[in-house]
Write a protein that binds this DNA or RNA. Structure first.
Lengths: 343, 343
DNA sequence: TTGTAGGCGTTATCAC
DNA sequence: GTGATAACGCCTACAA
């Protein structure tokens, strides 16, 4: 069974007794070609089922109209929401987005980044893994002149790159302030790795708030671990076995909070009566958990919007005259069935 | 600020006084080149920071090592899980995956499909929108010799394509059988569009089970709508306003069930006491809903695994000698806090 | 074991 | 207004 061969500009040119160049120009609405010819060419191209070969086009034009997006995970609400809106916004501006998933693995991330470079994307938006420390790839990307924007997660030493993130420090601070007013004094923080900003800033906001309100920080209640359900589960179980549970846990992400829910259920402890929780990240489904989970909301749509705007600006700025920008968005406290009163 | 120019094979060749072909072959471990030369070339390439231009490579080799993936949504658990595992499996086989989101819009889907074709992907995996009826694009893709595999959702008239799906009919049947044994007789189905298999098969499984067990089907309790939270919410509200609520609702997806949770909460009805629910689709978080949501589990990992295996087989089968395959996977009932007893 | 020639499909440049 | 020519960076086939 023979496959149909793809129609090329040459085929159309042959049929019409015109040159390849004329066809190419006409299809791109180049003013060189008369309206009449353009119309004819477009009609014939349509008839013949012409489809541009994007590889060839990109190779020759040195422009791909493509964005690279690197995230640590897909199946987490936060990243799902970010990806969906970035794809949408890019599509509206006629950009294709190439998604790549690092699975929280720095080596894999680096490999993906190199692939994106090889694919000649016009810009890269990335949320790094929790292990990412080595900046050499990013420096190389910069040197190559490919704009890069960090969203949400930024390596500690990359604070002068283009960044769109959330005010994590204040988010944590506000949560602790709220808990303090509720009367909570025994508060734990299940935090993330502190080599990236979200872990560090949330930790700092937590600690500063604790200190400012004169609450003692119990080092056994501070964890610097991961962002996944497993982490939440394990930290909780550790404290439970030590018989050393706090009254309230500030979880660094929604999955961590879910891990806490799992663990508490398993050992027969009731939230929020026996142990209370609040977390970063606002998924719609949190309203339907038992109990509904309160959180520090991160505005995912705004993050995406700002990231796209920024990267487009950078792509247009061919001479690289615009200085890197750091955009910090506000969080807000969303109170539901947890962390609303002390038990 | 001048950008670093990308290193090409030519640059390496110049430096080593060898031909471009030798470099190209060495970097691809072609047996033509001696081990010694190959080693040297690789070392120098590394030093010079060489990165292949994938556009050029694909253009000349007519192979992209790239898969196209089209889904209707990202931020739904089912698709998130599918995407994550497909990306992972493809990556392990050295394939890049280009994801594209149709947003349940058939026109957009078609556009994406054409783009993927233009990008010369080696194969396409797709879960269609609920509106997709027109098969012409798929026929064209076939004619072009690009393998395509449908997962989960398949247009009615495409049943002889490559398909990996779930036994939706039996899933629905089993659920109704279970409900019948519990004593339920007033059962509604919030279904999907019936022009694609998942809506149709679940509906048929539902109806056949109802008939077989001698339960009367109330047409006012049958909806053929959508797969989103909105649908669940609206259908529920409609019945509520008519004061015509059933005892149990079989929801076509987890988001639809979530919509029902939202609506019930809003009007002060308690699940499962006042109204009971069961749905297709198993997200981990369903265990933590209030009440924990029972479901008909669809094995997402197995779907992805089978889809990748099938597409790879098709890609290798250049002469197109293997007949299209339809793979149907079993579902299982996962009982939690809903649909476990009649109230 | 290495190199030469030609082409993949498109676009940029400059001439007609 | 239209076209010839030369890239873009790489690969295949064949020659040396």
């Amino acid at each position: 069974m023979e496959n149909e061969k793809a129609v090329t500009l040459q085929d159309i040119a042959n049929r019409l007794n015109l040159s390849v160049v004329t066809i190419s120009k006409a299809l791109r609405n180049h003013p060189d070609i008369s309206i009449k010819t353009t119309k004819l060419i477009k009609k014939v191209a349509e008839e013949m089922g012409y489809m541009p070969n994007i590889m060839a086009r990109n190779l020759s034009s040195r422009k791909s109209n493509t964005l690279g997006l690197v995230v640590p995970k897909i199946a987490h609400h936060f990243f799902g929401a970010i990806i969906e809106s970035i794809f949408d916004l890019a599509f509206q501006q006629n950009y294709e987005t190439i998604l790549t998933v690092s699975q929280e693995n720095a080596e894999r991330e680096k490999k993906h980044l190199l692939t994106l470079l090889s694919m000649k994307v016009d810009g890269i938006i990335i949320s790094v893994t929790q292990e990412t420390k080595d900046l050499s790839v990013f420096e190389m990307i910069e040197r190559r002149g490919v704009p890069i924007v960090f969203i949400d997660r930024v390596p500690e030493s990359a604070q002068n790159y283009n960044i769109v993130k959330v005010d994590d420090y204040n988010g944590a601070y506000k949560a602790i302030e709220h808990a303090y007013n509720l009367g909570y004094r025994k508060i734990a923080h299940f935090g993330g790795a502190t080599n990236i900003n979200i872990g560090r800033d949330r930790m700092n906001g937590f600690k500063d708030a604790m200190n400012n309100f004169g609450i003692e920080i119990n080092p056994n209640w501070i964890f610097e671990g991961g962002y996944s359900e497993n982490s939440g589960y394990e930290f909780f179980m550790k404290l439970y076995k030590e018989n050393n549970l706090p009254e309230l846990i500030l979880a660094v992400t929604y999955p961590v909070a879910l891990g806490i829910y799992m663990a508490a259920k398993e050992v027969g402890l009731e939230i929020p009566k026996d142990i209370d929780v609040i977390c970063f990240g606002n998924a719609k489904v949190q309203s339907f958990l038992s109990p509904p989970l309160s959180c520090i909301d991160q505005p995912t749509d705004l993050i995406s919007k700002n990231a796209i705007d920024l990267i487009m600006k950078k792509i247009d700025d061919e001479d690289n005259e615009i200085a890197p920008q750091q955009i910090v968005l506000d969080t807000s406290l969303v109170l539901r069935g947890t962390c609303i009163k002390k038990h």
